[in-house]
Nucleic acid binder design. Structure first.
Lengths: 137, 137
DNA sequence: AAATTTAGTTAGTATATTCTAACTAAAAAG
DNA sequence: CTTTTTAGTTAGAATATACTAACTAAATTT
């Protein structure tokens, strides 16, 4: 157990570093940490409305309205009015906003490469099959 | 390779969720995202001075001075004047500041438990030995 | 020992982040 | 069909985050 926790800690650190390196590569320099967090959350929720985003971020709706306005100005997000409820809009990431996904992919590929470099074909297969066990409900 | 990247992505998502859950458990509600990031970085650098912290965060020194002042007011950080260079101070996390480490430990333990639940004794040993291979230079 | 560099601070400014209060307009309930 | 609820916005205020310019004081160079 202790060993396992140490491994997770190391892996977590490694992933953090890779994500940071990826962030530099993709140079979202016109975004603050908080704005990145908004984009991540919009992405994870898949086109939420303002209310859903506010709940997820644990912020008040006016706060989110203002923040999203800025992200729209900067062309990272667009609002698409809902057909079912005309008061409401769904938030979509623009092409530019979706770059955050490519950024994560980049980080993940880098880690995958690191693993591939260190393990044999057979070990990689074992590694994958162990994770498949972990990720079944 | 594709499988491996998917696994890393899943794991990364899982870890993110755990870290968030841990943050809720530890309830650093008087800290902003950015302030948490300062504490993380101070912790990683191990008692940096203002200049080193500014470099690591890619911010100007006056920005960091002001931010650290606030973290000191909130009792998360203390400054210890350097003996070698009396102009400079080392930043230390207080007891309260070091809680962020416990928070990470909590997240890592939760993931470790998740893994232990899904794997047999033998599989865990294999899992650990594979990671040991990955983490040797 | 004087000049320069370095570490950090203070002051002032601009923008970001968050809140509450008060509002509009659409949808749902009575 | 009137009342109430819900989705979101606008306005105004407080605090946070970041910058440049100008400074102090200690350390280093010349």
């Amino acid at each position: 157990m202790k060993n396992l926790v140490e491994i997770i800690a190391k892996l977590s650190m490694e992933m953090g570093l890779m994500e940071e390196a990826a962030r530099e590569q993709f140079n979202f320099s016109d975004l603050t940490l908080t704005q990145m967090h908004y984009l991540e959350t919009i992405n994870n929720l898949v086109n939420p409305n303002i209310t859903e985003l506010a709940v997820a971020l644990k912020l008040k709706k006016p706060t989110v309205t203002v923040a999203v306005d800025k992200l729209m100005e900067k062309q990272y997000v667009i609002k698409v009015q809902s057909d079912e409820d005309r008061r409401s809009s769904h938030l979509h990431l623009t092409e530019k906003g979706r770059l955050i996904n490519q950024m994560h992919d980049y980080a993940h590929r880098t880690i995958a490469e690191l693993i591939i470099k260190k393990l044999s074909e057979k070990e990689i297969k074992t590694f994958i099959s162990l994770f498949e066990k972990i990720y079944t409900i």
